[in-house]
Design a protein around this nucleic acid. Sequence first.
DNA 1: TAGATTTATATCATGCCTCTATATAGGCAG
DNA 2: CTGCCTATATAGAGGCATGATATAAATCTA
Lengths: 167, 167
Amino acid sequence: MEYTQQSGPREPDVPATREQVAEALEQLAFLAVRHLTNRDISFTAASTLGRLSREGPSRLTALAADEGVTQPSMTQLIQRLERQGLVTRVDDPQDGRVVLVAITDAGRELLAERRRGRTNRLAELLATLSPEDQQALATAVHAAAPAFQRLVDNAARARKAPGSTAS
Amino acid sequence: MEYTQQSGPREPDVPATREQVAEALEQLAFLAVRHLTNRDISFTAASTLGRLSREGPSRLTALAADEGVTQPSMTQLIQRLERQGLVTRVDDPQDGRVVLVAITDAGRELLAERRRGRTNRLAELLATLSPEDQQALATAVHAAAPAFQRLVDNAARARKAPGSTAS
DNA sequence: TAGATTTATATCATGCCTCTATATAGGCAG
DNA sequence: CTGCCTATATAGAGGCATGATATAAATCTA
C-alpha cells in the first residue's frame, strides 16, 4: 500500500505513520470495549476494585482522585460495592473523618472471574483466525509489549500531572 | 507452519502466549477508556452516530440490534441525540410504523471532532516514547494490521450469530 | 481555649443510560 | 372486521456520573 511520508526518511522499511498507529489503536480499543467488556459492574467499579486489590485499603477521596471521578461519585460507587459485598469500610482510628475501603474475598473472586471471562472470549475470537494470523498477532504483541507498557505507564503518569492539551 | 495448540510447542521463538495477548488487549482497553474517551456522549451514542454516518438512515430496531441494546434504550438514545441536534427522525412513507433515523451535519462534525481529539491525545502519548519505542509500535501495528482487521471483522460477525460461551 | 478554616465524607437533586414490562398504532391475513 | 405481528413509545427502576451543599472531625489562629 502506497503512502507518502512528507520529507520522511527514504528507508523502504518504514512501517507505519503515526496516523496509522492511532487508527489501529482506536480499532483495537473499540474491539476491546465492544467484545471484551463484562456487563456486571461498571468500568470504574472494576478499576477501583483492581486498585484496591493491588494497593490495599484506601481512602475514598484518594480513590476518587485516582479514578478520575468526583468524591460523591466514589461515595455512591463504594456504597453499591459494599451492598454487593465486594468491599468493606473501616473507620480510621487515627482520623475520625476518614473511611478506609478494602476489597473483600468476594471482590477478588469477581476480579478473577472477570479476567477469566475476558480471556475466554478472546481465545474464542483468536480461534476464528488462521494459524498464520494468530502467529502474526502473537508476534506483534510480543514485539510491541515493552514499548506499549511504557506507553501505558506514561499515560497513567500524565493523568496525575495534567499537561497542555487536556480536553 | 506447524503449530500445536496446547501441549506447548518447544520452539524457542514462540512469540507470545494467548495470555500475553489477552493481557495486552486488556491493558489497551483500559488505556482507551481511560485516556482516549471523550466525555461528551456515551460509547453507544458515538457508535450509533458512526454507524449512521457509514450506513445512512436506519430504523430504530435495526440500530438497537446492531448496537446490542434493547429497543427502548435506543428509542431514548435517539430522543436525546435528536434533542442535541445530532440526528433527525423521518417517518417512512412506505410503512407508517417505522421511523428512519439519520445523522445531521452537526452529528458528522461531532464525530470528526471526537476523532481529532482522540488522535491528538494519542499523538501526545506516542510522543512521550523514545523513537525506538515508537518505531517498535509502528512496526508491530503494520505487521499485525491484516490479521487484526480479520479479527475485528470476525468479532463483528460473531455478534450477529451468537456462539457458545456468550456471557 | 474559642472561633474560623480546612479536610473527609455524605446527601440531594438532576441527567444519562440501561433494563423489563407494557402500551399504542400501523400493517397484514383470514 | 377480527386478530396477529411488527415498529415504536412509555413507565418504572436502578446504575453511574455530575454540582451544590451539609456534617463532622482536624487544624490553624487569634
